[in-house]
Each structure stands twice: as C-alpha cells, then as structure tokens.
C-alpha cells in the first residue's frame, strides 16, 4: 500500500497531546525538585541541588505512605478477585432476571469514587451512619475513624464495594467465551463440579485473572479520593497514602519543590510496578 507519511500524521495529534501533558510534566518535575519553590517563592525559585530528594528519601512518613499504599493494594486485590470470581460463577447459570441482576451489580462502577467516599463516610458516621446503627441493634458500640485499624478497614470496604463489580464483569465475560469441549469431555469422564472448577475453569481463566489482578493492583495503588474525603489521611498520619501525601505537600502546605521530589520517587516506584505489569501482559499478547 502506498502510505508515505499518512500513517505518521494519523498518530501525531494523539502523540502531541500525550507528550505535552505527560512527558513535559515529568521533565518539569525535575526542574521543580532541584529548586526551593513554594507558593511564596514561586516567581523566583532558588536552586538547592538535591536537598529535596534527600529530604524525601530520609523522611519516615514518605516511605510509610508508600508501604501503606502497597499494603492496601495487596489487601483489596485478592479479596476483590475472590468475590468477583465467586459472583461470576454464581451467575454462570440460568436465572430469572439475570440481566437485571447484572445491571444492578455493575451500578457501583458508574459511581464516582469521590461520591462513593462521601457515601461511605456517612455510612460509617457514628451519629447518622447505617453501619453503627446496625451494630447498635446487636448491642455493639463502635465508632469508626477513631483509630488506624477502623479507618483502614473503612477504606478497604469502600474499595471492595466499588471495584468488585469490575472484577466480576471481566471474569464473567471471560467465562462466556471459554471453549465448551473440555467441559463435555470432563462430563463424559464423570468429573464432579469441584474438579471441573479446579482443573478446567481455573486454568482456563488464569490469564484473565492475572490481567484483572494487575489492573486492580495498579489502580488501587493510585488511591486518593477515599483517603482524601473519608479519613483525611488520619488519625494523625496513619492512613496517608502516597498520592494524598504529595497532594498535601504541594497543594496544602505549598511546597512545590518537595512535592515534585516525592513525585519523582513515586514515578520510579510506579514505573517498576508498571513495567512488571506490562511485561506480564505483553507476554500474554494482551497489549
């Protein structure tokens, strides 16, 4: 085919936009990070070398937030995978009104995470919330958001309620497109349901489960809305994730230089994660 430059011209708009709002900012972050730039000294930044990087690298709270965010991602992802897979298997049969059930299950996906956070903040509110109200019926008195454990728990529950439907729909669609033959063969051989699941369904679903796991891990690592709105990073600093910490450093305390240095650290941490993820995905020819 005679194409000449057409194929390049077609990708130029997309590439130009991507570069201007992703590559340029990443490079600009380096400039900010080696300067003392705050809201006050915004007009004439002072070069301070690696001071911001050293500050971040030696700050306990930065590494705490990275650890906490990682922990969060690795806690919610397996739970969502198990529940999502479970619901997908439950709906893998003829049921009355199945389409309505699926639509209802998918509803949380259409809700903005910020709004989900507000809803959950009210749900767990000790005066007007439904959860403390229900606990009270069983004679339990518990106020959430008072300590780390309960605050972290509410964040986990919120993530599960919002994103289990995502895991469900992808695994459910995957189940629909599995080949029929292995199942027929297993039936002829007299395999029972448990064995069919363990030795046929699960291996066939493995690549798909891995993809969902990677997407969920990376997305959970971005967590911002839930923390920002529900716990504000508290009590104290205990639930501050990396995104929230950078947001506060830059936009609440106004230290652009320090926030930029933290951004660069986060960039490399995420790049390592993303590279592993992309390697795994392209190995399976998924992108």
């Amino acid at each position: 085919m005679k194409l000449g430059k057409t194929k390049y011209i077609l990708v130029i708009p997309a590439l130009a936009l991507l570069l201007s709002l992703t590559l340029y900012p990443t490079l600009f972050a380096y400039f900010l990070a080696v300067h003392n730039v705050t809201v006050g000294t915004f007009r004439n930044p002072v070069f301070i070398g690696l001071e911001n990087f050293i500050k971040i690298a030696t700050r306990h709270d930065f590494w705490y937030s990275v650890g906490l965010t990682t922990l969060f991602a690795f806690v919610v992802t397996p739970i969502e995978l198990v529940i999502g897979l479970f619901i997908a298997l439950l709906l893998e049969r003829e049921l009355l009104g199945k389409r309505i059930i699926i639509t209802l299950i998918l509803t949380p996906l259409a809700v903005a995470p910020a709004l989900m956070a507000i809803m959950m903040k009210l749900m767990f509110n000790e005066f007007v919330g439904l959860i403390p109200y229900l606990l009270n019926i069983f004679g339990l008195r518990y106020s959430f958001f008072k300590d780390f454990t309960s605050s972290f728990l509410t964040l986990i529950i919120t993530d599960i309620v919002q994103w289990t439907p995502f895991v469900f729909i992808i695994i459910y669609s995957g189940l629909q497109s599995l080949p029929r033959e292995p199942y027929e063969a297993a039936k002829i051989d007299g395999a029972d349901g448990r064995n069919i699941f363990l030795y046929i369904t699960l291996p066939l679903l493995k690549p798909l489960i891995l993809i969902v796991a990677i997407l969920r891990l990376m997305d959970a690592f971005k967590i911002f809305e839930y923390v920002h709105i529900m716990t504000g990073g508290g009590p104290g600093f205990s639930t501050t994730t990396t995104s929230v910490m950078i947001y506060r450093t830059g936009f609440i305390y106004g230290d652009f230089g320090l926030a930029a240095a933290a951004t660069i650290f986060l960039f490399y941490i995420s790049i390592i994660g993303a590279t592993i993820g992309i390697r795994l995905l392209s190995k399976m020819r998924m992108i």
């Binding site: 992703t22 990443t26 986060l266 994660g273």
Partner: peptide, 21 residues
C-alpha cells in the same frame, strides 16, 4: 507500551507540573 504505561501511573505524578503549566 508507552501509551499503556500512562494508564498505569498514578495521576498525582502529573498533577503538580500540569497545575504550574
């Protein structure tokens, strides 16, 4: 891969430079 990596990175990384830009 480059395009997909943007989908995986936390958006906060781009927030501050875009704000100043």
């Amino acid at each position: 891969s480059y395009i997909f990596s943007i989908r995986l990175l936390p958006p906060i990384i781009f927030a501050l430079p875009i704000f100043i830009l």
